[in-house]
Amino acid sequence: MQDLKGLVVENIPLTKEIYKLQISVPEEILPEIIPGSFAMLKIEAKGVFLRRPFSFADVDLKTGLVTFYIKLVGKGTGALREIHPGQEISMLLPLGRGFTVMPGKSLLVAGGIGIAPLNFLAREIIKKGGEISIIYGVKNEAMFIPEITKNFKNIEVYSEIPGPGKKGLVLDGLKAKDINSYDQIYLCGPNVMLQAAKPYLQNFSGLVEVSLESYMACGFGACLGCVVKVFSNNEIEYKKVCKDGPVFNFKEVVL
């Protein structure tokens, strides 16, 4: 982990609810940033005290840019939307345990802004010669990032309210797939999506990994605020989303 200053290069709205923030960071940190890892960004705004965690949605080794897709949620993400190109931003990075990139066929299942880390993961898998299919479910047009679908060939979009892609839920996409034709599955999305997907994936024999989100104060394992219940080795434990995760074995997570 390093505490460093990045330079905002671009901050543009993609939809009513999502914006894309690109930050130039020192070159030497780039190789340490892996899919699933995240940064804690310091937002200089009235009343905002804690940093906010965001997963990397992409890293470009050539330009030195990191990309975040950010959903407008509250005070912090509202203030961050106003940051201008040319402004400096304090970042703690890279944080957390990322995805295990495996060879073969991977199925990526994203719900809403959960697409962010999976975009980065998909690129990394392809770079390493693996094959990917993506199920990308959104609530409505405002949650849909069009540029994602331009990045990948094998992507199916589902929308809860008629909008982009087919009408339906992520779960409909999962049911339509022969999941056993994949070697591993990766997920990121809201809890309701994860809960719905869980029974379908319980008997899948390959690796299933999930990236979780949580309120956190520090992001590096000190506050113990971001824990999630995990069942492993016949024991229930609280694990830190920030340090033991955010990527966990999906079968072990108690949702």
Binding site: F49, Y215, L224, G225, C226, V227, V228, Y238
Partner: peptide, 30 residues
């Protein structure tokens, strides 16, 4: 961090949240 005689799991999440100019926690001496 506080040590107790026996291990403690701590409280159920969410355990932290921001408040104006500060934060609130209920870690529960994990």
């Amino acid at each position: 961090k506080t040590i107790t005689k026996n291990p403690r799991l701590g409280n159920r999440p969410p355990r932290v949240y921001e408040v104006s100019c500060g934060m609130i926690n209920s870690i529960g001496l994990a």
